[in-house]
């Protein structure tokens, strides 16, 4: 192949074999070119279809305007607007598809490879100029590098300092304290026997109703003391078993109490916690990594439920500073 040594993409105009005259290889388009006619075979029919849909679009928009002004039902407003937009778009697309020339149109390309002399000259110029730039503009290049380096360092500052305060100890404690009175969502004090066996109730420390970190769920599997594990003998007096309602997986409230299987289910990712005698809310299914913290309760002299103190571990999902 004689073209290999040249290295160019195609033969130059001098090398081409002239078998087809130029004006036949590159014909000029004319007004009457049959390929520039509308693409549809039945132009009138295509015009009718496009026109019909454009009219429907027009009516749809008008109807939407009327329905909006007259406050008709949402369904009607949406339907009119939808029909209007769809029909209008369909009509425009049909116009473009059926009433315009479709092609494809191919234009032969004139040979455009450079001569060998031109290629060599250009290569020499680029390489030579590039090398000279490094020698001559070293000082400017250095300043550019220094500026970029400082920019990179400074861009990291918002990440390092402005992401908000470090939590420090604020996640370790809730508002439950020794002697906090247990209240329900309406602020009513909870007595020891208010919850029936098989019942469950969402409670808060008095004064902090609605606080997300303090929310606690009391379940009552029986009416006698429930011991979930060693060391917690007094924590569930008369069966009032209190756990943090904040799921240890991602923080959703674990409010689904299954009375017969004695389990708490979290609705978000279906973590299932075993509760009851000898079962300290250990997760048996789902993504929760740790058991729900248990709140120790006691019954005061008036028969009301109170907390013996705060939870013995931070509530809710894990975080970096959690021991």
């Amino acid at each position: 192949m004689t073209d290999v040594k040249e290295g160019a993409s195609g033969p130059g105009p001098e090398a081409r074999h002239q078998t087809v005259p130029d004006d036949e290889m590159f014909p000029v388009a004319s007004f009457d070119d049959p390929h520039l006619q509308p693409a549809a075979k039945h132009v009138r029919r295509a015009e009718g279809v496009a026109g019909l849909f454009l009219v429907i679009g027009f009516l749809g928009f008008a109807a939407y305007g009327a329905s909006y002004w007259q406050n008709w039902s949402n369904v009607l407003q949406g339907a009119f607007l939808g029909v209007g937009l769809f029909a209008f778009g369909f009509g425009m697309s049909a116009w473009g598809k059926y009433l315009l020339p479709q092609g494809p149109f191919v234009e032969e390309r004139h040979p455009n490879a450079s001569t060998e002399a031109e290629v060599d000259a250009m290569a020499a110029a680029v390489v030579g100029r590039g090398a000279m730039m490094f020698r001559r503009r070293g000082f400017l290049g250095g300043i550019l590098g220094a500026g970029a380096g400082v920019m990179g360092v400074v861009m990291a500052f918002p990440l390092l300092r402005s992401l908000g305060p470090v939590p420090k100890q604020s996640f370790d404690h809730t508002h439950w304290k020794k002697g906090s009175r247990v209240v329900d969502f309406n602020g009513k004090l909870v007595r020891a026997d208010d919850i029936l066996t098989g019942g469950s109730l969402t409670v808060f420390p008095e004064g902090y109703v609605g606080n997300a970190m303090d929310q606690t769920i009391i379940v009552r599997p029986t009416t006698s003391n429930v011991v979930t594990k060693a060391g917690r003998e007094t924590w569930a007096p008369r069966g009032n078993l209190a756990f943090s309602k904040v799921c240890t997986h991602a923080g959703c409230p674990v409010g689904l109490y299954q009375e017969q299987t004695q389990q708490l289910l979290c609705p978000c990712h279906q973590s299932l916690f075993d509760v009851g005698q000898g079962r300290p809310a250990v997760p048996v299914f789902g993504p929760a990594p740790r058991p729900l913290p248990q709140l120790p309760l006691y019954i005061d002299a008036g028969g009301y439920l109170r907390a013996q103190g705060d939870y013995h571990e931070p509530v809710g999902p894990g975080f970096w500073e959690r021991s």
Binding site: D194, G199, Y257, E259
Partner: peptide, 13 residues
């Protein structure tokens, strides 16, 4: 009455 797995909600609750 809290049928089945449904918890019971008594008058105290």
């Amino acid at each position: 009455t809290g049928p089945g797995n449904m918890p019971r909600f008594g008058p105290g609750q």
